[in-house]
Amino acid sequence: PESADLRALARHLYESYLKYFPLTKAKARAILSGKTSDNAPFVIHDMKSLMEGEHMINCRQMPMQEHRRSDVGIMREVELRFFHSCQSRSAEAVSEVTEFAKSIPGFVNLDLNDQVTLLKYGVIEVLIIMMAPLMNKDGTLISYGQIFMTREFLKSLRKPFCEMMEPKFEFSVKFNMLELDDSDMALFLAVIILSGDRPGLLNVKPIEDLQETVLHSLELQLKTNHPDSLQLFAKVLQKMTDLRQLVTDHVQLIQLMKETELDWCLHPLLQEIMRDLY
């Protein structure tokens, strides 16, 4: 394709990225560096601040149960409520990623079953990539940037909750060193979604054709946007290998939680995605 077409594709995907994803990297970095006129985020660094900040997270689906009144019981419940609200937010985010996928030219013309497969296998990878701009080495923004939760606090939760986020921090700190901006991210997300090697695809060729065009667009975009960053295109693509391992480990952890946590019930949409995934 002509470079003008590739640039138009990049612009189109950037516009739908801005339309569907409420917290951009630009905004997140402004919040994290204190360069915004908005209020600084509320910091959650221990159980007390989690309980204080709970009203800012959507925790209403799971009211405090009467029969547990000991401190340990209450803390256990606060943890569970927090992870339930993480699930609700993740389900919302899946819906946003779906709208973004539908805006990729040609996506909605693919076989509907293949669209489902691409989302099923791609969406957690996309969500992990989208978490990276919200993170730094010390913690992560949540609740649309209203809250900063520290990495140490997440590590201090009981097993297996404490194991959930640490691998994402390790990945994100390295990924952020590539310094992609929102317009680069939009193209990279589309490349991830259009992976022709997902298990069970019926018609691979049109998916690979679409991905090839987006890859050309990403390559051109990175050369133009980051002229001094050598081999950036190759480095970005290499991240896709790390992502698959992260998703496999994440799904295993969720399965483990389903078995060990009696109070744990997985959001139906997340269940659909994770069932028979890897």
Partner: peptide, 20 residues
């Protein structure tokens, strides 16, 4: 199709993200 009915619904919904 039954196994992924919410994903199907999200994909076939023509407006903005659906309320989950």
């Amino acid at each position: 199709k039954e196994k992924h009915k919410i994903l199907h619904r999200l994909l076939q919904n023509s407006s903005s993200p659906v309320d989950l």
